[in-house]
Design a protein around this nucleic acid. Sequence first.
RNA 1: GGGCCCGUAGCUCAGUUGGAUAGAGCGGCGGACUUCUAAUCCGCAGGUCGCAGGUUCGAAUCCUGCCGGGCCUGCCA
Length: 557
Amino acid sequence: MAKEILSSLLRDAFSSARAEGALSAEEVPPIVIEIPANEGFGDYSSNLAMLLAKPERKAPFIIAECLKKHLKDSEGVLREVRVEKPGFINFYLKPDFWASRLSEVLADPAAHGRSDWGKGQKVLLEFVSANPTGPLHVGHGRGAAVGDALGRILKASGFDVHQEYYVNDFGNQMNMLGKSTYLRYLESKGEQIEFPEDGYQGDYIREIAASESYREKVILSGEDDPEAELQRSVQASAAVIIDDIRGALEEFRVFFDEWFSESSLFENPDRVEEAIRALEGTSGIYEKDGAKWLNSSKYGDEKDRVVVREDGRPTYLASDIAYHHLKFQRGFDRCINIWGADHHGYLPRVRASLEMQGIDPARLDVLFVQFVSLRRGGEPVQMSTRSGQFEELSTVVREVGVDAARFFFLMRSVDSALEFDLDLAKEQTNENPVYYVQYAHARTCSLFRQAEEQGERLDPLTDVPAGGLSLPEEHALAKSILEWPQVVRLAAERLEPHRIPFELMAIAKDFHAYYNRHRILGQEPDVTRARLCLVRCIQAVLSNGLDLLGVSAPDRM
RNA sequence: GGGCCCGUAGCUCAGUUGGAUAGAGCGGCGGACUUCUAAUCCGCAGGUCGCAGGUUCGAAUCCUGCCGGGCCUGCCA
């Protein structure tokens, strides 16, 4: 808001200076307006003069003075403009400016931070997609939180988002799953079994095998056909696990528009076969040693990859190629995947397959989420899907709560490995940043409850009384409030959800400090009213921001 | 060997794509509850931004080379 105004004023100043011959550069460099870290350098600041120094062949300070001279405050927002040391142009805004801009926010507080920046682009957001061979662990939880929050952020930014879970219900691992369960069932019957080393070891396998419904579905009375039983075991085991995954995600407040089954790719129109044939047509696939290879090295991959094995069975990559082609065939403008960092090597080959099809590989973005390491006390906890010792997402969520778990996962850049200490999270429950932010929100609600009891008319809280906001803290808060849409926009543009919690913590901090230092209620009528307007805006940011994270915003705590 | 990510306060991490005096939370120390919720606030301590060069008005940020840590490097999925 403010930045747009100031940059357009600067642009005009440049043109005006150029028209008079005071400046000569061909074009204006991209104008950057920043909020200086130090309040002594004004409300906003620009380095335009420094950027012009080279093309103008003049000292930045001189250029800055020149721009200042040609600056016309057509909007009437400036209190003062100063040129500082190397050549910064610092803007000091009139107090009325904040009031007038906050009034715009008050017109529709729930919409503050929403935009149509995405222009309704159709985005396929695929995340979690954990193999249905065991319960979700905390690593998947991080992906789930990041994906879901990103979905909310993109929707708020005007994208048409479709959230999808890709279910890898095909291939060897499914057979191994069914076999593992079946063997555990036989074992429970007292039979001697030899459990394979690459079988699934977890207790959940025994639980499924011991369940009533497993026996009903798999072990039909009177029959004794191990082969058929094994087949049914695959289906039954996978169904139980997928239900379990879905349940854990719902408990974590993560929902999908679609659960896309990998095996469905092989049905009716065999999408995998289609995709392979299409690539063969573009000579993206060639035969060697009896197998079919993707010519991905030609497109930046380290080497070529097998797509169809010697024995004719397609590899996982074949499914993935077909799946991603289909994504674009389904009409999505853009695809975003959230993958574990251990999958980073797969991107070049998938992108290669897109490029071979004439699809711009830039339309596929992949967010690589670094690992979560779980600690209990000082001890690292082993996490392996097959060891049976992993920590399940649902266990952690029940221990620390959905809000805290989500906030924790989202607080860090996905590029950083995350250390999650369960004992610490439990001990610190009352000190957790999420409570800090939630408490700030509850406080704003409490203020309005009090205000109402004191007979303050809140219904048309739309216009900030002139002169009601004069404190520096209030200007700082107003600045943050007006900056909020930019934060959401940046989070969406750069796919960085962690910006949201950081901004919320900063605003909560400023609000708590303001609240402790100044009374809102019981002041001069215009002052109280203006402050309530400010608080309403803060409340909107906190509430909207928490909503983007999928974290609750309680009215009282 | 090659690829991706990371290295910033005691710990966990931000740092607005190159800006001005380096930031938060937790932990530590010391203060503030007859007053709108103390799940809060105020103050103090704590740093060769892994190391060394380079680029320029200016570098935690960009380039190069090292050092250290994590993860990949299947005709598994």
